[in-house]
Design a protein around this nucleic acid. Structure first.
Lengths: 188, 188, 188, 188
DNA sequence: CAATAAGCGAGACGGTACGTCCAGTCTTCTT
DNA sequence: AAGAAGACTGGACGTACCGTCTCGCTTATTG
């Protein structure tokens, strides 16, 4: 049987990717650069990851706790506020924010990365949120006619609009704004 | 006295960019390729545009009518439905959709392109929408406490969430869903 | 004590080397490729041979009968004709010719292989020929002033000139030409 | 019309190739290394030469005077001695000798280089020698039955046998030996 | 007759170089 | 002056092999 994968190299690679991305930016990040910084052969990267984006995604995922359950206190608005505030702090914070933005950007013209990103990060987040919303509907806290997935797109889309289209960030106040508009409705 | 900019070349360049982008995808699009396809020297491209993204943005803008005023029949919901349906057909349609997605993607790690995109496409669209919302507020059709910009992010964000995060499209029914959720509110 | 060298693997390796060299050419021959073709670990090759050339040389040597004595009928010209014709058929034939040429080529910039090649193939051949020539000198069939090694270079060099410099082969007629020119001399 | 070839770069490239080859040896010579040493992009090498061997061949040819006519004093032996001594000094000397050997070696498994080498260096040399020999035959200095090309292979082959097979050099005394053996003949 | 030491297949590893593509600049000649 | 053509330096791509290094398995003595 063959030699096993070197966890030491894998760690050095993801660490180097994160550091370099912060230093030179995602656009100038290169597999060559990651390998050099990590003290690793390029082949070792290509053996396990298909692209620089995949390396960065792995690095990000290992920094997060994705298996955290969606909060459920019985009050959907409170729970959404809790979760959204946390998600913003993590996904748009200085640690993973820039990398996350860059990955979403790259995914727009890299189908493989897009699939990876959806399967391992965005999809699970959306599913957990949609499920929590379904529960809230059964409890009569959200109108039954609303498609849970559409609710997710409505509430979370506002933040991505800020991040990806306007290039700005969002704070706790914006979370409140979104929840207020979304639950109360825009009508007077 | 200088020779003026050749409109003929400019046209050939933007046309080539759009065609090539559809054929090989934005990631494999290159200034070199555009020049070759357009029968043009590379320098002629670099003289007038800073990057492939800028060329594509120009090409897109010339295909749209951005100076169209936001509809105003006096009923904000009707007007939003009209505008959103049209915007979706244009911005997510097969003609400009893929290019628009790619540009938003590239902008995430290309500040110059991001600025260009915001100044010439996204900004104007948002401003017009926000202004229409302000008018609706004065007419008592939208709660006064709502920040017009936040309203824009809420309503339009839902579509970008679908396009950029989930990689799916949106149809007229989704427009209705979003407007219903947004105006009526999620609460029963 | 340990397991002994696997003759089965050794055979598979030399066989694979010869086959691959014929198929892809010496330049594209690689230790990696030989190992794969032979169904053998790379280490097993590196354990017993220093380079692809050494493997091929071994393969060649095992195909030849080097211990055959130089013919000695008493007539040096007849014996040279016999030996040269045989040598040409072997060393320039389709079986070992291409490999032999490639090895001589590689040896020009690979001192270790050059030494190996000389010690195990070229040297012995030259020595046997020189010895036979010395005998002929004692029998008065060749001028005593001639250095036997120089005679070898003169007579055999003609063939290598054809093979290595001109890239052509030599036939029995050429053997006669060389012997005629060499023994009779060029002068009318 | 396009920019012309940069003679400055070409010079830097051939110079770097020669220097590097002497320093690290032909086997470790690389296009990458030549480019780096010459301060040139790799593409500039690949644009004009197909391989490292071709670069080196060009460098060698530019150092020689190939258009020098074969000497003709009327005495073929004297002329051959003159030419051979000169050829040895050049082709086996410390300046071009190692490179020439390496090129002949590489040519054994690189057909394109072999053709180049023959067309531009070996062929012309052989033709000039064969022509001089033809003249000598007409003057009755060489037997008419001898094929001039075979004479060339006989006389010059001796040197290549020394250089390529035995890895030794040849001196003026060896030239005399070869001419003596060749013209007088080996027979007592 | 178990321990043990080497050979073995497999293949991951840090590296070097390959030959290609493209970026962005510079030069030359044409319009 | 602007344009087409394309050569230039330079950086990165993704691939192929190099020669070394574990792995876990098989085999063959030898204490």
């Amino acid at each position: 049987m063959p030699a096993a994968r070197s966890e030491q190299s894998a760690e050095a690679i993801t660490r180097a990717a994160v550091e370099l991305c912060l230093e030179v930016g995602y656009a100038k990040l290169s597999v060559e650069g990651i390998a050099a910084r990590a003290g690793v052969g390029k082949q070792t990267i290509y053996r396990w990851w298909p692209s620089k984006g995949a390396v960065l995604l792995d690095a990000l995922l290992s920094k997060m706790t994705l298996d955290a359950p969606f909060p459920d206190t019985g009050d959907i608005v409170v729970d959404l506020r809790t979760q959204m505030t946390g998600a913003i702090r993590t996904l748009m914070g200085p640690e993973v924010g820039p990398h996350y933005r860059a990955l979403i950007g790259d995914a727009q013209h890299n189908p493989a990365l897009a699939a990876d990103l959806r399967d391992r990060l965005i999809g699970p987040l959306c599913v957990k949120a949609a499920n929590r919303i379904r529960v809230a509907q059964q409890q009569g806290q959200i109108r039954a006619e609303c498609d849970p997935d559409a609710v997710v797109s409505l509430l979370y889309g506002a933040f991505y609009h800020r991040m990806l289209l306007l290039g700005t960030t969002a704070d706790a106040a914006f979370v409140d704004d979104v929840l207020s508009m979304g639950f109360v409705g825009l009508r007077p």
